[in-house]
Amino acid sequence: MIRSELIQKIAEENPHLYQRDVEKIVNTIFEEITKAMAEGHRVELRGFGAFSVKKRDQRVGRNPRTGHAVEVEEKHVPFFKTGKLLRDRLNGK
C-alpha cells in the first residue's frame, strides 16, 4: 500500500469529506511525526508503536573503496519500535 492508496481508503470510509481534505489529513499526520523527531521528540502511538530518535556516537569509519580511515561525526537517526498490540496481531493473537 502506498500513500495515495491509503488516502483513497480513508476517503472511501469518509464520503462526507473532500478528497483534498483527506490528503491534507494524511499528510499532516506524517508531517507531524517527522517534525517531532526532527525536534528530538518521541511520538508514542499506543498499540501501534513508537517513533524515537537514537543517537549514533562519533566513530572512525573507513572509505570502503580506498580503505582510508575517516572521522564520522555523531548523528541522530529515526527509530520505530512496534507496539505490543500490533506485534501480537501480526502473529495472529
Partner: peptide, 22 residues
C-alpha cells in the same frame, strides 16, 4: 535533547488545526 513525547492527541490536534475538523 528535549525529551518531549507526542501522542495521538497531538496528531489529532494538528489535524484539527490544519484541516479545521472537530
Amino acid at each position: 535533547m528535549a525529551g518531549e513525547t507526542l501522542t495521538r492527541m497531538d496528531l489529532a490536534e494538528a489535524v484539527h488545526r490544519e484541516v479545521g475538523l472537530s
